Computed example of a mutant assay.
Amino acid sequence: MQQISLNDVSTYVENNIGTFHQKRIASLDGLSLTKVLKRKNPYLFKAKYVLTAEEIIRGLVDAHISSNEETIFGDWLEGLAIFINGKVYGGWKSGIEGIDLEFDNNGQRFMVNIKSGPNWGNASQIKKMKSDFKTAAKTLRTSNSGLQVVAINGCCYGKSPNPDKGDYFKYCGQRFWEFISGNAELYTEIIEPLGHKAKEKNDEFQQSYAQRINMFTKTFTCEYCKDNGAIDWKKLVEFNSSAS
């Protein structure tokens, strides 16, 4: 086991955080009004007494951003976790389906499935993860029958009061970062490096966001508003839900 310094973490963040910001802007720039209108519930907007095109557009775009950023940043944090573990325990990005990280410690092989937070999946998704763990364990034991394999569901934030889930262990927040690094304080120490150039990058994002809101609002007004400016709910619902 090797110690990792906060300078190592800061350097990694500085060299890689740009990827997160680039992907969030690219996702926004690639957003299509047609697609978001088709996958959102038009009845909900009516029930909430939404009256303006901009309100609808902001609701659509903000929902996309919220969902998409969680996924993008979750993937980025996975890379950070693998980097840190590689420095400390010599861990590596797994090539086995459903496994993100593998490393050896105290005579055990840990296979880790990394998620953003604790409430990441429904019953069928958790069942799939368990199946992936079993398949991965068989794969690993094929080449080393005596290998002691331990399955871990690691979550970058949150809490899991009962880590032992029977088939696997679930470590969240502080437990997860300590597990992969040996440092009980890492979960708070990484906060500052993550803010590297955050304001500068967010200013770029806000420009892209404003342009998308303006463009979508203009298109929506032309397509789904009546001559008097009122939203044409019939036309909007037909676009979203008509069988033809």
Rank of each mutant, 00 (worst) to 15 (best):
I190D: 05
T217K: 13
W177D: 10
G91T: 12
E70Q: 13
S116E: 04
G18A: 07
V9P: 09
G117E: 12
V50K: 10
C225K: 10
V50I: 15
T11L: 14
N183Y: 00
K134G: 06
E185M: 08
L44D: 00
E70S: 13
Q108Y: 07
V88P: 10
G146I: 10
T34A: 12
K23P: 00
G195N: 12
C225E: 11
F179S: 06
K159H: 09
N119Q: 13
K128L: 09
G195W: 02
Q108H: 08
I25L: 03
Q22W: 00
N240Q: 13
N122H: 08
M1Q: 00
E200I: 12
E192T: 14
L101N: 04
Y168D: 03
F239Q: 06
Y49H: 11
P163F: 02
Y49E: 11
R58M: 09
G90A: 09
I180S: 01
C156K: 06
A136T: 05
F73G: 01
A53D: 07
P163Q: 09
S66G: 15
N202K: 09
W233Q: 06
G86W: 00
G117A: 13
W120R: 09
G74D: 06
S242L: 06
A47N: 09
P118G: 10
K159V: 14
N41G: 01
I190P: 01
I82W: 11
E14Y: 04
I17L: 10
G121I: 02
Y171D: 04
D62R: 11
K235Y: 03
K218H: 14
I191H: 05
L80N: 02
K199R: 13
C155M: 12
A198G: 04
L77D: 06
E200P: 00
F216K: 09
N228T: 12
I96V: 15
D8H: 05
R212A: 04
D164A: 07
I82L: 08
Y43M: 11
L37A: 07
G18I: 12
W76T: 05
E55K: 11
G107V: 11
L51F: 10
K218F: 05
T135W: 01
K23W: 01
T135E: 08
A184P: 14
E69T: 12
F73N: 06
C156W: 01
I65C: 08
E78I: 00
F205A: 00
P118M: 01
